[in-house]
């Protein structure tokens, strides 16, 4: 009875000739597979960590941008402000998903603590569109009928006080809850026009390092106490899908703009990870090719070695190869 092609080939392979090559090919193929899968896995993991919705709160999506203050710009306030053309240019960049102005106050602001705390300071207010604020609070609203102004403080500000100023001056450290509970006396003035409000801290922001008030209050107060001139913004905030986008980093560098460098640190990390993943993937592919080559050589060697011994079978093998699908 004529043996089948598979039986013949199996018999040839089982002779043991070139077994070391088969082991090498198997090892090579295994390592190549592992390297390729690691490259795919690492690439997917990094993408997932940077861009997935679940991790959206962990990655920096919002960047506050301002111009770098140089020695030449000192004393010239206008030079640190964004012109209409510069704003339009930023808005049309592909990496900008949303754009907002940071509006400054055009009046004097002072804050005083109530009772015997003897705290008084000049300060400033800024406002940003609500969609850019990381503090969600029902108290974050203001109408002209309200005498209480909700305020968001930067988290860094409280940390600086608690761990810098308070410790060095032997003053008590204050918790966030206490700060929220203390009503502040806020006085807004411009010339002879003065109005008093109660300021209440409603949250602490990690995203925007400024004293924030609602946009409706800023608009009303600037109209009432301001000089009537709409000032250009000196800081803007953008929402971007990928703060580590090298195009964004290059744009900021080219234009001489500044932002929180910590938020764009992923740009370098991403580049390093991409390089490592590419190198692993490349070596995996090369190794895979070599493993295939060794497999091929193994079969070649086995068949060549057995050519004389199994000449009759080989005749049938070749005959069957011509007709059978392997």
């Amino acid at each position: 009875m004529m043996p089948s092609f598979y039986q013949l080939l199996k018999k040839i392979i089982q002779t043991g000739i070139g077994r070391s090559r088969l082991i090498m090919a198997t090892g090579g193929l295994g390592i190549a597979m592992i390297l390729l899968l690691i490259a795919i896995q690492a690439h997917s993991d990094f993408d997932q960590l940077l861009y997935s919705q679940q991790n959206a709160n962990e990655s920096a999506d919002f960047l506050v941008i301002n111009k770098k203050i140089t020695n030449a710009m000192m004393g010239q306030r206008g030079q640190s402000m964004f012109t209409a053309a510069e704003i339009a240019d930023i808005k049309q960049q592909s990496f900008v998903e949303a754009f907002g102005f940071i509006t400054s106050n055009q009046y004097k602001v002072t804050a005083a603590a109530p009772g015997d705390l003897h705290f008084y300071t000049d300060m400033f207010f800024e406002s940003v569109p609500d969609t850019f604020i990381d503090v969600k609070n029902e108290e974050w609203k203001w109408t002209p009928a309200d005498n209480t102004i909700p305020i968001i403080l930067p988290n860094d500000f409280l940390n600086l006080y608690n761990f810098g100023f308070a410790l060095s001056q032997d003053l008590p450290q204050i918790s966030q809850e206490t700060v929220k509970a203390i009503p502040m006396k806020i006085t807004i003035s411009q010339g002879l026009l003065t109005q008093e409000f109660t300021g209440r801290i409603v949250g602490f922001s990690d995203r925007i390092s400024s004293f924030l008030v609602p946009g409706s209050f800023m608009e009303w107060a600037n109209a009432k106490f301001g000089n009537g001139v709409v000032a250009s913004p000196s800081r803007v905030i953008i929402k971007t899908k990928d703060p580590s986008n090298p195009a964004l980093v290059k744009y900021l560098d080219d234009k001489g703009y500044n932002t929180n460098q910590d938020k764009i640190k992923y740009s370098k990390t991403k580049l390093i990870v991409q390089t490592i993943v590419s190198v692993i993937g490349f070596f995996g592919l090369i190794l895979l090719l070599f493993a295939l080559l060794v497999f091929s050589m193994f079969v070649q060697l086995v068949i060549a070695s057995c050519k004389k011994k199994y000449n009759y079978w080989l005749h049938w093998v070749l005959l069957l190869v011509s007709y059978n699908d392997t």
Binding site: F295, S296, Q300, A304, K307, V317, V321
Partner: peptide, 13 residues
């Protein structure tokens, strides 16, 4: 591998 092995067998014949 399937293509390579077939090629090898044909070459040896």
């Amino acid at each position: 591998n399937r293509i390579n092995i077939r090629k090898n067998i044909n070459a040896i014949s």
